[in-house]
């Protein structure tokens, strides 16, 4: 039941954060092991999704500190992400969007872990500022600041890559 409801969500958060499909599978399994161990501590009435995402976030940050993923390369924006992209819409626009996403996917590695997580939760997973603050355990103002800094940094990366492409 829990696996059916939340495995894809947790896996995607792990994949977007780590950038490695294989690593994300291992991380998801570790997060679920922690989840089943921590279930007796869950207080009924609390937002379960936020509680689980907090648990996942803590594990991802711990693993990041332990292994320092930023030194590793992210997977290419390969068939996993391309096959999952929505197939509808204008093909030319879709191609442009895919190209932007390919650049941003690589650009996520340049964001510090706290900012990367805030951007993933707010901009990609679609959480509100309030939910993101609850998950990350920092005030809403700090979340806004992190998300805005992340967006700006990614926009600069996109601009730079476009400039480099135009120069060619």
């Amino acid at each position: 039941m829990l696996v059916d409801l939340f495995s894809k969500k947790v896996f995607n958060l792990a994949y977007q954060f780590s950038g490695s499909y294989q690593e994300a599978q291992d991380l998801t399994q570790e997060i679920f092991v922690k989840l089943f161990g921590a279930l007796p501590k869950y207080e009924f009435g609390k937002n379960f999704s936020a509680w689980l995402t907090t648990l996942a976030k803590n594990h991802l940050i711990d693993e990041y500190r332990r292994t320092k993923w930023e030194k590793k390369n992210r997977d290419d924006f390969d068939e996993h992400l391309l096959s999952a992209a929505a197939p509808n819409g204008d093909p030319e626009k879709r191609l442009l969007q895919t190209e932007r996403q390919r650049i941003l996917w690589a650009g996520l590695n340049q964001l510090p872990p706290d900012i990367r997580l805030a951007v993933l939760l707010k901009e990609i997973q679609g959480k509100s500022y309030e939910e993101t603050a609850e998950i990350t355990g920092v005030p809403e103002g700090t979340v806004k600041s992190r998300v805005n800094r992340g967006r700006l940094q990614l926009a600069r990366i996109l601009q730079k890559s476009r400039g480099a492409a135009d120069d060619l």
């Binding site: 995607n12 977007q16 999952a84 969007q97 996403q101 901009e123 990609i124 990614l154 926009a155």
Partner: peptide, 14 residues
């Protein structure tokens, strides 16, 4: 463009 690209970021099947 960044905001739009992030908002439509694909969700991958494990």
């Amino acid at each position: 463009e960044t905001d739009a690209a992030l908002a439509s970021f694909p969700q991958v099947d494990p």
